[in-house]
Design a protein around this nucleic acid. Structure first.
Length: 157
DNA sequence: CGTCTTTGACCCGCGC
DNA sequence: GCGCGGGTCAAAGACG
């Protein structure tokens, strides 16, 4: 995982802390199973794997469990930019949740990392971001964009 | 002009 | 076998 992302989230959390200090331990991180790591190792990164969600699916292929990492962050903004470029490819409403869930995908060529953002019905300030896959490339964003990030934070404050 | 969002339709696995 | 729910595609528009 990239540290940049963590930094980003840290900032976000800081920003939202002032909203309500109800729970300080809202952040949770859950990994499905370490077995998934094995699968991704087999996968050999993203060099050999291409789009797999295509129609017709692939039969006869062993099931490759993709690792999923869910980050629960306190933030009223779902635009959590971790430095990568995402393209939104879908939005669906989930049951037991009045808010829709957004599906994003990394736009880098050959990078099929997916992420989905969902917010809880009870706490609108809580956003669950689920990452799927790992980035095999560098961050495309300019590293010296702190001004931009700062401006973002200021807007929401 | 290139990139990204939007939005409805489509597909598929699964439960009944 | 059918319907539902969740995930994805793709065309058109928005935006710089």
């Amino acid at each position: 995982m990239s540290l940049n992302m963590i930094n980003s989230y840290a900032s976000t959390d800081f920003e939202s802390t002032k909203g309500s200090g109800l729970l300080g331990l809202m952040q949770e991180m859950q990994a499905p199973a370490s077995l998934d790591f094995d699968s991704i190792s087999q996968n050999g990164g993203f060099a050999g794997s291409e789009s797999e969600g295509k129609l017709g699916k692939r039969k006869g292929e062993k099931k490759i469990r993709k690792p999923k990492y869910a980050f629960q962050t306190r933030s009223r903004v779902d635009i959590l930019d971790d430095g990568y470029r995402w393209r939104k490819y879908g939005q669906k409403a989930v049951k037991n949740n009045k808010f829709p869930r957004s599906y994003y995908r990394c736009t880098h060529q050959g990078c099929s990392v997916k992420k989905q953002v969902q917010r809880l019905t009870n706490d609108e300030g809580v956003v669950v971001t689920t990452y799927e896959g790992m980035h095999s490339h560098q961050i495309e964003k300019s590293p010296d964009n702190f001004e931009h990030i700062l401006s973002q934070m200021q807007i929401f404050s």
